[in-house]
Design a protein around this nucleic acid. Structure first.
Length: 866
RNA sequence: GCGGACGUGGUGGAAUCGGUAGACACACAGGACUUAAAAUCCUGAGGGGGCGACCCCGUGCGGGUUCGAGUCCCGCCGUCCGCACCA
């Protein structure tokens, strides 16, 4: 039996059934062990799992299994982010109901995930499209509504013309819909919003704490997105035309109120009410505004567009300098959505203002003097001065620092009632309405007399109707003949349901808590949450750095305000995994080919690809993220069926650090498969020579046995640390080293060596458990155990074996390595120095000079300087 | 433009504190086994020089700090990511 190949696909099915039958991974809520909540972002049930899923869930599963072995009570659940547009597209294209399509996909993908051998507690599984789930989401929405965290307003919204729905700001990337890629249009609509801005400051502040356990780039991106700027609002009186009272003052936001004496013009957005008012009687202005609007849609064009202004003839009165009037321009670079949609221009200290001032011949007066510069010799050329300095040309501010000047102006503004200190955020409220069918209905009713009436909690869930059609554009819920017509819960008169559904990001903003009590009658269960929450480690894709992770952070705060949770941050530590990439292949006529349609020969510069079907040459293209459009995909099912899940898992965790992109290659998979066989063979050899369990430990060990034991225990120690730190690739390398040491020991003889080999083999099996769970289980059985490896605790190290009696340290002469020295670990500095100086290699390198200085770092290095 | 991350052999990568650079693996070359192949095992290998013990160079480039720098500091170059007329 020793040389038989390990039949992974067969054995893996066996072990999966055993785990399933025994309920090995069912989580016990009543355990006394310390808890560990390990979570990976749940998948959208698009049809089949892809390698990105395999990577994400493997990374999480290694940690979950490791923590389990380390004595933690682990919660490692799985579910489905099941609402969303693709289901409706399938309904339109294939005449299949979104529900049917979704649940069928879930069945397929659940089977695929189970074939990966994940240590998931499947009893907690749910899909967000289950009414049992979304009824609680509707409850949360109503609680948010009561707290005014959900509200309705008319606003310019991003309209995705392909998805036929609105999008939140976060979902517009480079002016295009994040999913459809369609150029987004601006429309005025009344929509539901979550008041995420209420928590802007908190969400920002808490990042300082998260920084320690979250990736830097995620924190940075969230900071940028929140976009805090501290400044002041300032009101200017307007003159030079007949204006309605409301428009006689112009309020601007500035972060440089210190530079007010350098102001030389005002600029307002083309969408500013004042611009609209003036345009009524000014045809040229109206044309200018129209021109701005045309450019205004795409940010790309906006960035390239030349700065242009239109002098309205209106002037603003300088609030601190008598007799100074500042002309008011409508300008194409002022956005209405930020601040007040109006600025004062100080060309001396803002590049954009300077460009504008030069173009329209406005004065440029420096008001901040750089350190060391002479006031009378300092002027502004082509570049604005934005650095530190002291105030000049600024009357009562002269001589102050920028900060002191800001403070003084802000005080005066507040004293005179013409402004105040003001903090602005770039972040807008979260637009959650979607004009779609396959989403969670927003549980409110519009009554002609009572206005917006929440659906009573006992009437939840507001269920989606089954009988919908997708044959005309727009929202099927709106077209439905009866669904929306209801009686007002307040007055009983005819009313209509809200037909908007929620953004699917709402579904994924709180699912992490639902797993802790998936059957609770309320959205969360206090007791379960107290034990399990928050998530100890969350793993997912980089693309959610702002979207999902920011929403979930907000939602947790909203749930705290509505007493559903009692903490602020959902994810204690966050890990973003890299993507799976693969070469692309293109035939002569430009069609993409899948990897299995292509035959590769040669290597290096001689590497050639040909089409299997036609025999014609194929161009090997860039290495890109696996995608259906490029056809550079490898189906996990094929890999699992051919090599087994353990091989796929091993490939995923070897070589590439988990946060970097990983290049999927056939050669790499074959290599991983060889390692699986190698380990299997090695364990067979050990089990054959020494059948039965590990016997009693011998009293003494010879040098060979001692060396192997040291290697095994050291590996145990550092593999544990490397798994904890998600350096799985390093852990795998160390396991290979132990495998080599164990192989080599097989052909040696020595006192206690058989026992040491047995011990090392068992440790190896236990250490590969998190990564290669099926193989480990199989080997454990072969080693004579009838217990499950999955139930074994992580082996203990013998601390004495982690330190060597004698160690080898490098010997340098003038910083260059010349030799090495094996010496007692406890050797003193003097002993090391003496031993080093005795070395012939040292004397030769000194070349006749004498040592002037010897640096000794015990247990590390000795450096002779001479 | 601003912000962040990164840059190590043919390739993926390792080096946790400033202390033997290149662990481990892929690919490659040579060898063993075999009628042959597959599979497996063994050996070799950063670059250059020398018959050789050995010597020189080497972590994107240029400086610096240090007994000692892949690691720290300054200045460049390059790649990737995010944000971008944000007042």
């Amino acid at each position: 039996m020793a040389s038989e190949r390990y039949n992974a696909p067969v054995r893996e099915k066996h072990w999966q059934k055993v785990w399933d039958d025994q309920g090995t991974f069912q989580t016990n809520d009543k355990s006394k062990k310390p808890k560990r909540y390990q979570l990976e972002m749940f998948p959208y049930p698009s049809g089949r799992i892809h390698m990105g899923h395999v990577r994400c869930y493997t990374l999480g599963d290694v940690m979950a299994r490791y923590k389990r072995a380390k004595g933690f009570n682990v919660l490692h659940p799985m579910g489905w982010d099941a609402f969303g547009l693709p289901a409706e597209n399938a309904a339109m294209e294939r005449k299949v109901h979104p529900r049917k399509w979704t649940y069928e996909n879930i069945d397929t993908m659940r089977g695929q995930l189970k074939a990966m051998g994940l240590s998931i507690d499947w009893s907690r599984e749910f899909a967000t499209c289950n009414p049992e789930y979304y009824q609680h989401q509707q409850r949360l929405f109503l609680d948010f509504f009561k707290k005014k965290l959900a509200y309705r307003k008319t606003a310019k919204v991003n309209w995705d013309p392909v998805e036929n729905t609105v999008l939140a700001n976060e979902q517009v990337i480079d002016g295009r819909g994040w999913r459809s890629g369609a150029v987004v249009e601006q429309r005025d609509l009344t929509q539901w919003f979550f008041k995420i801005t209420e928590y802007a400051e908190e969400l920002l502040q808490a990042l300082d704490t998260l920084q320690a356990t979250w990736p830097d780039f995620v924190c940075t991106q969230q900071r940028n997105w929140i976009g805090k700027s501290t400044g002041a609002n300032m009101k200017f009186a307007l003159e030079g035309g007949k204006l309605p009272k409301k428009l006689q003052t112009l309020e601007v936001f500035t972060t440089r109120h210190d530079t007010i004496f350098g102001a030389s013009f005002m600029a307002i957005s083309a969408e500013h009410p004042l611009a609209a008012h003036l345009a009524q009687k000014n045809k040229e202005l109206a044309e200018f505004i129209e021109e701005c609007r045309k450019i205004g849609t795409s940010e790309e064009a906006l960035a390239k567009a030349e700065k242009k202004g239109f002098d309205t003839g209106i002037v603003a009165v300088h609030p601190f300098k008598d007799g100074v009037q500042l002309p008011v321009y409508v300008a194409n670079f002022i956005v209405m959505g930020y601040g007040t949609g109006a600025i004062f221009g100080c060309p001396g200290h803002d590049q954009r203002d300077l460009d504008f001032a030069r173009k329209y011949a406005r004065p440029v007066v420096p008001v901040v003097l750089p350190p060391g510069a002479q006031a009378d010799a300092f002027s502004i050329g082509a570049e604005a001065y934005v650095g530190e300095g002291t105030m000049i040309n600024s009357e009562f501010l002269n001589g102050l620092t920028i900060e002191a000047a800001k403070d003084k102006i802000a005080g005066l503004l507040e004293e005179r009632g013409i402004g105040e200190r003001k903090v602005n955020y770039r972040m807008r409220d979260w637009l959650l309405s979607r004009q779609r069918y396959w989403g969670c209905p927003i549980p409110v009713i519009h009554c002609p007399t009572d206005g917006i009436v929440p659906v009573p909690i006992e009437a939840l869930p507001v269920q989606l109707p089954e009988d919908v059609t997708f044959d005309k554009p727009g929202n099927p819920l709106d077209h439905h003949p009866t669904w929306k017509h209801v009686k007002c819960p307040k007055c009983g008169e005819p009313a209509v349901r809200e037909t908007d559904t929620m953004d699917t990001f709402v579904d994924s903003s709180w699912y992490q808590f639902r797993y802790t009590a998936p059957n609770a009658a309320t959205p969360t269960d206090k007791k379960a949450l107290k034990y399990w929450a928050p998530i100890d480690q969350y793993i997912g894709g980089k693309e959610h750095a702002v979207l999902h992770l920011l929403y979930a952070r907000f939602f947790t705060r909203g749930m705290k305000a509505t007493k559903h949770v009692d903490f602020d941050e959902p994810f204690t530590s966050m890990f973003t995994q890299g993507i799976v990439v693969h070469e692309t292949y293109r035939s002569e006529n430009g069609d993409w080919l899948t990897p299995d349609e292509v035959k590769i020969e040669g290597d290096g510069p001689n590497r050639r690809a040909t089409s299997i079907a036609t025999g014609r040459p194929v161009e090997i293209g860039d290495i890109e993220k696996m995608s259906k459009s490029r056809k550079n995909v490898v189906d996990p099912d094929d890999i699992i069926a051919h090599y087994g899940a353990d091989t796929a898992r091993l490939f995923i965790v070897s070589d590439s650090p988990p946060d970097r992109d990983i290049i999927w290659t056939d050669a790499g998979v074959a290599g991983a498969s060889r390692q699986v066989q190698r380990i299997s063979r090695l364990i067979d050899e050990v089990a054959e020579k020494q059948p039965g369990k590990l016997g009693p430990k011998p009293a003494t060990f010879g040098p060979e046995a001692h060396a192997l034991r040291r290697a095994a225990h050291k590996t145990l120690h550092s593999v544990g640390q490397n798994i904890e730190g998600l350096r799985y690739n390093v852990a795998v390398a160390q396991l290979y080293e132990l495998t080599h040491a164990l192989s080599a020991a097989q052909s040696q003889r020595g006192e206690g060596l058989d026992w040491a080999i047995r011990e090392a083999a068992e440790m190896l099996v236990q250490m590969i458990g998190p990564m290669l769970p099926h193989l480990a289980e199989d080997c454990w059985e072969r080693l004579g155990y009838n217990t499950l490896l999955a139930d074994q605790s992580w082996p203990q190290t013998e601390p004495a074996l982690l330190v060597d009696d004698r160690i080898t340290i490098a010997v340098q002469v003038n910083g260059k390595r010349r030799d090495e020295l094996t010496i007692a670990r406890t050797a003193s500095k003097e002993e090391i120095e003496a031993a080093a100086l005795k070395l012939e290699t040292v004397a030769r390198a000194l070349d006749g000079r004498s040592a002037t200085r010897v640096i000794v770092v015990p247990q590390r290095i000795v450096n002779v300087v001479g």
